[in-house]
């Protein structure tokens, strides 16, 4: 039997033990198999409530959590910034108070400020799942990326993945690379100088060009989204320039194909910026698999966490 300790919240990747990672990724497999059935739903969380609290626009992460919760028969409430009193000046703690009164069992939160999910977690009995906070963490993305990579490379230890793009502003890069590193997968990065953090972890080796990346023979290339909305300064001259320097174009796709490497992207894709139409239809693109695995991983996370809503 399992000797895992129960966990209330999922706030980051760094604090997870390898046994916990194996537990969640292992359980995600049977959840994914449910999608092959005509009835994709199970009654496990019947009568439980999941609250999606999104302070930043998000369609795919919030929908993914919504689908995951629905497939476990939980009731889902979506609370987004533009349609709630958060925009009327309610403070975070007042909002938490309100949510507590609604007796949600699980709170999925995305916020532009790093650390907000931790504050919410400390003030509520519900299980809190960080769905992205500032530049800090996005743990379910890291889990789904790892699941996806491990499906195509079951002997994943020692494999190499190149992350390309805006590493500085990317919580995806932060969480995913941390988890890959924990799994013994090597991580390299390529991107405009201003978007590769100086203080990056030592395990992240930096490449100067695509040629360097291809010489390293990566097993997968992870293209990050160019986050126009999260850049206050000018980090690269123009979108066209970015595409020319770092985008996945036809020539680079030839090299990727020759290597047999897989392509990953967290979505939503900026076509013509980080990736061309041609690269989108590459036969070893894992982008749709990432979406599917995202639902399975989130189901496994909801199944795993233990809220304390019934405690005195």
């Amino acid at each position: 039997m399992s000797d895992l300790k129960p966990r209330k919240d999922l706030l980051d990747i760094g604090s997870l033990g390898l046994d916990e990672i194996e537990y969640v990724l292992g359980n995600a497999v049977p959840f994914k198999q449910l999608f092959q059935r005509s009835v994709k739903k199970v009654p496990t969380l019947r009568g439980k409530t999941v609250l999606n609290l999104f302070y930043e626009p998000s369609t795919r992460t919030s929908s993914s959590f919504e689908v995951a919760a629905n497939r476990m028969s939980a009731d889902v409430t979506n609370f987004s910034v533009s349609s709630s009193s958060i925009s009327k000046g309610e403070s975070l703690l007042d909002t938490i108070e309100t949510l507590q009164a609604m007796q949600s069992d699980y709170i999925v939160i995305r916020h532009q400020a790093a650390g907000v999910p931790n504050i919410v977690a400390n003030h509520t009995r519900a299980s809190v799942i960080n769905a992205g906070d500032g530049y800090h963490a996005h743990p379910t993305q890291a889990l789904l990326d790892t699941m996806t990579f491990r499906e195509v490379h079951p002997d994943y230890a020692g494999k190499r993945i190149a992350i390309v793009g805006d590493v500085l502003h990317s919580r995806v890069a932060r969480s995913t690379s941390t988890l890959f590193h924990k799994q013994g997968i090597e991580v390299g990065v390529l991107g405009p100088g201003a978007l590769i953090p100086e203080g990056r972890p030592a395990f992240m080796q930096r490449f100067q060009s695509w040629e360097d990346v291809f010489d390293w023979k990566p097993h997968a290339i992870y293209l990050l989204r160019v986050q126009m909305e999260r850049q206050e300064g000018q980090f690269f001259p123009s979108v066209a320039e970015y595409h020319k320097m770092y985008g996945m174009n036809s020539d680079r796709l030839v090299s990727v194909r020759k290597l047999g490497a897989y392509l990953m992207h967290p979505g939503p894709v900026n076509r013509g910026v980080e990736v061309t139409d041609e690269a989108m239809s590459y036969e070893k693109s894992l982008i749709s698999t990432q979406v599917e695995n995202g639902i399975a991983v989130r189901m496994a996370v909801l199944h795993w966490l233990k809220p304390e809503t019934q405690k005195d």
């Binding site: 292992g26 049977p30 198999q33 199970v42 795993w304 233990k306």
Partner: peptide, 23 residues
């Protein structure tokens, strides 16, 4: 068939962490 997800005693608040099998 793994029936873990169908149990009427699934304890989402306790210490039980079942490992699921693929049906």
């Amino acid at each position: 068939l793994d029936i873990s997800l169908y149990r009427d005693d699934f304890d989402n608040e306790g210490t039980d962490l079942p490992r699921l099998e693929s049906s």
